[in-house]
Structure formats: structure tokens, C-alpha cells
Amino acid sequence: MRVIVGTDIASIPIAIIIALVIGGVLIALSGVNPFEAYGALLQGAFGTPQHLADTLIEATPLALIGVGIALCFRAGVFNVGAEGQFLLGGMAAAITGNLLSTAPAIATLLAMAIAAVLAGAAWAAIAALLKVYLGASETLTTIMLTYVATYLVSYLLNGPARDPATPIAQTQPLTTSGLLPGLWPGTTLHVGIVIALIVAVAAHYFLRRRVGGFQIVATGLNPVAARSAGLPVRRILISVFLTSGALAGLAGFIQVSGVQGKMIVNLSPGYGYTAIVVALLGRSTPLGAFLAALFFGALSAGGASMETSVGVPASVVTIVQYLTVLLVIAYTAARTLRRPSRVADEEE
């Protein structure tokens, strides 16, 4: 599966501008000045240190999950189950944090991260094994596993893992040792964004500079040829699935430890699904996914401010997000369709 790989970079800002113009038309039809609305959006995303922190906090899980999904795209597989892997990672992190509530912070956080990574990877491994050994569609299995994960987390939060001190479906609040340290004094920004950046840079380096990265790309381009060349295609596919699940689980840990301070039912507003769009807009590259996550984070943080300030529904932001990706895909498809005609013209 080659998804917006190698797209002309200039097409992305053009797509963003067109999507914003269309969004502006929708805003105008609602009786609000588009410039005023977008001004409120920018203010909500970057206007104060806390607003900028909100943007980066929103971008963090999208970046981590998006990098994992981008790696899957490069290998020719589609992980639609990151939402479930994210939730299970958060659940595992919260349980571990509560069990180690009296341990030193470094030990607690490390154990929470490991538990989250293992939970996400293990859940992704189910779909990976079904894919490579039974030929099951990973799109179907991952989305079905997401439903199972969602209800499993709900069961745990309403039963064995629920805080006995409250009727609300949530775990006990984490102690200080289970909370990620802050990154920007005076704001709620935590070190999660640094972790996401490190992951994106490391994944970029791996794909570009390491043999394993070349094998992933080769498998995605043509798995039959890769297998004929002696590449361990099954192992490669399982590895990218495990990596994608691990990063989704890590994002769950960061959301629990850095934002909520406990595991809750609504930990995710749909990060696992939005991250698919982030990976697409990022041209299926790790650094591209990170930048796309920042863009989506700004729209998400600013959209809430736009709604409260000028009364424009935040759904307009969602329209802009998805229109941007659709326009990039349309550009790529149009460019691909033009190629055969150019070749024919040259032959004539």
C-alpha cells in the first residue's frame, strides 16, 4: 500500500489553503466573518503560552500513533486498530502506576511505559499473525480488535480496575511518581512532545539509513519481489505491526500520565482514527506525520476557542482537516493518471 508517498510537497500547503478557503465559505454562510473566526482559531492555538502548550499536547498522541501508522503504510499494510492499542496502553500504564505508587518516579514511569508498549504491541500482534499466517485482512481484524479493546477497557474501569472511592468509571488517580514531568513552567505542557519528536526522528533515520528500513520500503513496494530477493517478508510485516502497536500504547501511557492523571473511559476522542489521516497528510513519512500532527493539534486546540469566541461550530475544523487530505489524495491520483498519457504522447 503506497499512500501519498512521494507526493509533491508543494501540493500540501496548496491543499491546506484550499481547504481553509472552503472552510471560510462555510463560516461565512453561518453569518460569521471568516477572518474573525480564523483569527480566533489562531489565538486559541498560539495566542498564549498555555494555548501553544494545548496545541503541542493535542499533537503528541497524534504524532506517536501517526508515525506507527506511517511505518505500516511503508510496509504495505494498514493498521486501523491503533485506537484499541492506545486504550489498552493507557489501561496498562494506569494499572502499573497504581501498583507502583510508592516507588521512585523514574522506576514507576519506566514500568508504566514498558507496560503500555507491551500492551499495544501484543494487541497489534494478534492482527499481524492473522495477516501473515492465515491471510486475514488486517483492515477487518484491526477494526474488530478495536471494538474488543474498547469494551474490555470499559469492563475493567467499571469492575476490577475502578477506583472504589468513586462511582465513575476510572482508575485511582496516579500519585506524583506516576506523572510525567512538566516541560514548560507555567503551562500544562509535559515531556511527551519531546518523546514524540525523538520517535519521529529515530524512525526517519531508520527508514533512510538502516538496512531494516530499506527492507520495510522494499516490502511495501512489492512484497512478491521482496520475498523473491530473500527478504523475510513475514518477519518484516509482524515487526511493523508490533512497532505501530507499541507506539500507540506509548501514546496511551503519555495521555494517562501527562494529561489525565488516571485512566478514564473517554481517554481518546478518536486519536487512533485521526492519526490515520495524520499519516496520510504526512506522506507516510515519520517526520511528515509529526508535522501533520502539529497542524492537526493547532486546529483542534484553536477550534475550541473559535467555537466559544465567535460561535462557529468546531466541526468546521474537522471539515478542514479531512478536506486537506482528500485534496492531497486527489492531486496524487490526478498526477498518476496523467503519466500514461504523457508516455503515449512521447511514443507518438
Rank of each mutant, 00 (worst) to 15 (best):
N266Q: 14
I95R: 10
A202P: 06
E307R: 04
R209Y: 12
G249K: 03
G39S: 12
Q50D: 10
V317I: 15
I236W: 00
I193K: 11
T141Q: 07
L140S: 03
R74G: 00
H190M: 07
Y322D: 05
S239Q: 12
A122Q: 08
Y322N: 09
R208Q: 15
Q43K: 11
Y271N: 08
I4D: 00
T139W: 03
R235P: 00
M263R: 04
N266I: 00
Y133Q: 14
T243R: 00
I236H: 01
Q50M: 10
G282M: 06
L183Y: 05
P160S: 13
L134I: 02
L337V: 13
V132L: 04
T55I: 03
G23Q: 12
M263I: 07
W123N: 07
H204L: 07
T285A: 06
A107F: 15
A229F: 11
V310W: 13
P173M: 05
L99W: 13
A75G: 13
L118W: 03
I27L: 04
L64I: 08
A119Q: 09
A292N: 01
L323G: 02
W184D: 01
A53M: 05
V320D: 05
Q170H: 10
Y133T: 14
T187H: 06
L88C: 10
P269N: 07
A82F: 01
Y273N: 03
T142Y: 04
G213H: 09
V67S: 07
L291I: 14
I106R: 03
E347R: 15
L152C: 11
S309R: 12
S101M: 09
Y151M: 05
L197S: 05
I17K: 04
A293Q: 09
L207C: 09
P34H: 07
R162V: 00
F73V: 01
T55A: 03
P232R: 10
Q170W: 08
V117N: 06
I69K: 01
F253L: 03
G186L: 05
A113R: 10
A40S: 15
A70Y: 08
I12C: 02
Y273W: 15
G245F: 02
L62N: 05
S154V: 13
F253Q: 03
Y147G: 14
F241C: 09
H204V: 00
T171M: 06
Y273S: 08
T96C: 10
L20G: 12
G245M: 02
A248E: 11
A298Y: 01
G272T: 01
M1A: 12
V256A: 08
A15T: 10
A70E: 06
I14T: 12
S284N: 07
L100N: 02
V217E: 15
Q170C: 05
I18S: 09
A225N: 06
I168F: 13
L62Y: 10
P286W: 08
G297L: 10
V25C: 10
L42C: 12
S228G: 15
V199G: 02
I114L: 13
A75P: 07
A15V: 06
G297S: 12
G272F: 04
T188S: 15
Y205G: 01
I17T: 14
